[in-house]
């Protein structure tokens, strides 16, 4: 695997993670600072099965997704009752707790980490993952559940008054986001071949959130391109050595201040917009408020 491919794989994994953040934050309006711990669940499950039982990577990744969904219920059922900022708080708590558990657990390698996961992720695996994720998220967004999530984001109380089961909607979005993070985690495990608890901290979660904001919180396209742009930017800044983090943070801050809605705001890429005839038919005004 060449350097470009490995950057490409990293970009792809970040895009998948950003899709998860988009579902839970962009669509549903819940600020999760614990998304990295769902990546951790997927990664550690996959890595553990691969090193201990030498299972096929695909099965490991699937198992990682399943475990992520299970965990999302364990975490979601209590914490989704909490509103607004309290939910963010609960996700921070979860992130700290999972990190402590992974650190003390001998099974998962403790602080030394999980060593010896085969390095098998190739670019087409990631392309498949990205395409599938983007497709699922797009359909979810346009489905009944997606609209319910959107109503929760806009006004939870009003949504409830209209008979939307807000808790169920939130749980579905949360589980979907976790499943997506789990997938990213699995790919990460087989890309890096090594996992340690300090790769999945609260500051890492906040970086994911910043990526989605950078692209445009209410735009799926923005989430994809934001994640890609910032991952590439980080790599490009490698040659700036000690200035790297300052440059990176400054660029993000400027974008957030100049374009608070992110680079893409609520704009969505669609195949229709490439087709002039259909474009004329639909009119140029696409998509209103971030649908």
């Amino acid at each position: 695997m060449s350097f470009y491919e490995s950057v490409f794989v990293n970009v792809g994994i970040m895009i998948i993670i950003a899709q998860g953040v988009y579902v839970i934050t962009g669509l549903t309006g819940l600020f999760s600072l614990g998304q990295s711990s769902f990546v951790a669940v997927g990664a550690y499950t996959a890595g553990f099965l691969a090193t201990r039982f030498e299972m096929h990577p695909l099965l490991c990744i699937l198992a990682g997704i399943v475990v992520s969904i299970l965990v999302s219920f364990i975490i979601g059922i209590p914490s989704l009752r909490l509103r607004h900022v309290y939910f963010s708080l609960a996700t921070i708590a979860y992130c700290y707790a999972l990190q402590a558990i992974l650190t003390v657990s001998e099974t998962f390698g403790g602080s030394i980490g999980l060593v010896g996961v085969p390095v098998v992720t190739r670019w087409w695996h990631v392309v498949l993952g990205v395409v599938a994720t983007v497709w699922i998220v797009r359909n979810f967004k346009l489905s009944r559940f997606g609209l319910a999530c959107l109503s929760v984001r806009t006004d939870e109380l009003a949504a409830r008054t209209y008979g939307i089961q807000t808790f169920v909607s939130k749980q579905i979005a949360f589980s979907l986001a976790s499943a997506i993070s789990g997938l990213a985690g699995g790919l990460l495990a087989f890309n890096l071949g090594y996992l340690s608890p300090d790769m999945f901290t609260v500051p890492v979660s906040s970086e994911y959130l910043i990526m989605v904001f950078f692209g445009g919180l209410y735009s799926q396209t923005g989430a994809v391109l934001g994640a890609a742009a910032l991952t590439v930017l980080m790599e490009l800044l490698r040659t700036t050595a000690a200035w790297r983090m300052i440059a990176y943070s400054t660029i993000i801050l400027i974008i957030i201040l100049v374009r608070p809605n992110g680079l893409f705001g609520t704009w969505e890429f669609s195949l229709d917009s490439l087709n002039p005839r259909r474009r004329a038919k639909h009119g140029l005004a696409k998509g209103g408020e971030g649908v």
Binding site: M1, S2, F3, Y4, S6, V7, N10, L188, L192, Y194, S196, M199, E235, R238, T239, A241, A242, R244, M245
Partner: peptide, 22 residues
């Protein structure tokens, strides 16, 4: 050629690949 890994394993691997490939 000195590259930064900013304390993260992923970054360390990318730096290694960049050094070797590029």
């Amino acid at each position: 050629i000195v590259y930064d890994h900013k304390g993260s394993p992923q970054e360390g691997v990318l730096a290694y690949r960049r050094l070797v490939d590029e």
